[in-house]
Every structure is written in C-alpha cells, then in structure tokens.
C-alpha cells in the first residue's frame, strides 16, 4: 500500500510537469491547428538557461529558493522571446501553406535549437546544484519532498491562473474567439496576430517553468532533454483532447500516473512476462485504447465538431 501511495506521488509530480508542457502544445493547437514540434526545445532552453543563472548564484549566499526564483525569472522572458521568435520565423509565413509545411519548419527549428544549445551549453549533462532544502514528509512509508509539494502546488496554481485568464479576461475571450473562428474574430476587431503571439508567449512561459521543475526534481539537464519530454507532453495533450485546456491538464496527470503505475505494476499484472521496459508500450496502448473509443481524446468534443 505504501508502495502504491509512493507510485501515486511519483506519477502526480511527473504528470504535473507533463501537464504544464502539454498546455503549450494544446494552446497553440487550439488557436492555429498546428503541432509546435519545437516546443520541447523551449523547455530545454528554459531548463538550461535557468540552471546557468542558478549555478552562477549558487555560491552567492542567497537563500536557495531566491536563487531558483531568479533563475526562473531569467528563463521565463528568455523562453517567451524564443517562442515569439519561433512563431515569427517558422510559422507565421506559413499560415496559408499546406498543413504539413509548418511541421517541417518546426522539426528544422528543433534541430537548430538543439545544435545551438549544444554549442552554448556543451555536450555534457548538467546537474542541479544542491541549494534547495532537502526536507520532506513521510506518509506512512512513502515520502514526498518539499520540492515535490512545491512543484505540485505551483503547477496547480499556474493552471488555475491560466483557466482564469482564458475564461475571465479580455485576452482570454479573444483567444477563445480566435480558436473558434479566426476569420470572424478578426472581423470583430480581434487582432489575430497579437493573439497568436500571446499564445506562444504564454505557452513558452509555462515551458520555462516546467523546464526548471524537471531539472530541479530529477536534477538533470541536457541539450537533448526536450525531445522525449516534448513527445510525452504532446501525447498527454492528445490523450486529453488536443486544443482543450483542461484536457491537457487531465491528460498530463493521467499520463504521469499511467507511466509510474505501469512501470510499478505491469510486471506483477502480467506475471513477470512484461516488465518496466514496456512502460511506454503501456502508455501508448492506453492512448490508443482511449482514442479508439473517444476519437478526439478524453475532453476534446470541441475539436471533433470542428474537424
């Protein structure tokens, strides 16, 4: 039972990081109908740039939390600028182009960003300096660190804030209108280009935060970390119903839980025939199963209508 609780905690932490990244995919998809394949690289740049600042300040005597906060404050605008730049360079000129054209520029962008990161941060893996307090709580035999609690709370707060932004503000209303029908939204006086830019800015800011969370929790950052993370988050976004904001959150959390419970119990469930090496198979299998019965994801009715 304690193992089970521990696996749930593992899954929730991983899942909330997936959710933050998945939001970036889903926001862009909702507005542009485009898979932003370079989003994972934004997470990577967020993680590495924050880490650079954090390492620089680690010996300065500032409290650990303040150092991490400064790191995040540097990474967020940087990633926002990056996201904005990606949209301007790789996607905006291709709005009228066939649907797969931006996919190729996105892949190209992803390769370019990886190589630039490699030139800048080198080929080595980077670890997170031990500046955060290593305290935590025991729940039975299970353990949750304060860092993980902070990650869960912060992710929840960010998601709640995003929901408020989308549902309660002028910007949110304009975003929803653009997602619904960009043409008519434009006629109604919504500046579509500004809204699209805003979407990329928000998604990239979330990516930066998620990047710092990954590197802090798993204590690792590398110029190639974005690809797999992006892939998983994209899967999560689809699982929840791509284009749907609450869907991305749900999809992220679910995928995290599926992965950790899958790795933890798949061996016992199959009598040792399948082990944790089939963790990803299990995750994709659940995804396929969900999509077979709900072809537009768990919460994706909106998209189904549009398709």
């Amino acid at each position: 039972m304690d193992t089970f609780i521990q696996q749930i905690i593992n899954g929730l932490v991983l899942g909330s990081i997936y959710a933050l990244v998945a939001l970036g995919y889903t926001l862009v998809y909702g507005i542009l109908g485009l898979i932003n394949f370079a989003h994972g690289e934004v997470v990577m740049i967020g993680a590495l740039s924050a880490l650079t600042v954090i390492k620089l300040l680690a010996g300065s005597g500032l409290p650990g939390i303040a150092v991490v906060a400064i790191g995040v404050l540097v990474a967020v605008p940087l990633c926002m600028a990056l996201g904005y730049g990606i949209e301007r360079v790789a996607y905006r000129p291709l709005r009228q182009a066939p649907r797969l054209a931006p996919l190729i520029t996105a892949i190209g962008m992803s390769i370019v960003l990886q190589q630039l990161a490699m030139i800048f941060w080198g080929r080595n893996y980077h670890s997170f300096p031990p500046i955060l307090p290593e305290t935590g709580r025991e729940i039975g035999d299970a353990y949750i660190s304060d860092l993980q609690i902070a990650i869960l709370l912060l992710a929840a707060a960010i998601m709640a804030g995003l929901m408020l932004l989308i549902n309660r503000t002028r910007l949110g209303r304009a975003m929803r209108a653009t997602a619904e029908n960009p043409q008519i939204a434009g006629l109604m006086g919504v500046n579509i280009n500004a809204i699209i830019s805003a979407t990329f800015l928000i998604g990239s800011a979330l990516a930066a935060v998620a990047g710092v969370m990954v590197s802090a929790n798993y204590s690792i950052a590398h110029y190639q970390m974005g690809f797999i993370l992006g892939l998983k988050a994209f899967t999560a976004a689809v699982l929840g119903g791509i284009g749907n904001v609450p869907g991305a959150m749900l999809g992220g959390l679910l995928l995290g839980l599926i992965e950790s419970l899958g790795a933890g119990y798949i061996g016992d469930l199959t009598g040792g025939f399948l082990g944790s090496h089939y963790q990803d198979v299990f995750a994709f299998f659940v995804l396929i199963l969900v999509l077979v019965f709900r072809p537009s994801g768990l919460m994706g009715e909106k998209v189904a209508e549009r398709a």
Binding site: Q6, Q7, L14, G262, G264, G267, S276
Partner: peptide
C-alpha cells in the same frame, strides 16, 4: 527485481519505488 529504463530517461522514481518494496 529486474527493472528497466532507457538511455534517455531522467525519471526513475517508479522503478526505484518498486525496487524499494
């Protein structure tokens, strides 16, 4: 226990939790 991960993984919490048990 015989557990598995990948050469690109960063999260080992799930398999380590299982090993712990």
């Amino acid at each position: 226990a015989r557990e598995f991960t990948t050469d690109k993984a960063t999260d080992f919490a799930a398999i380590l939790t299982r090993i712990k048990s």
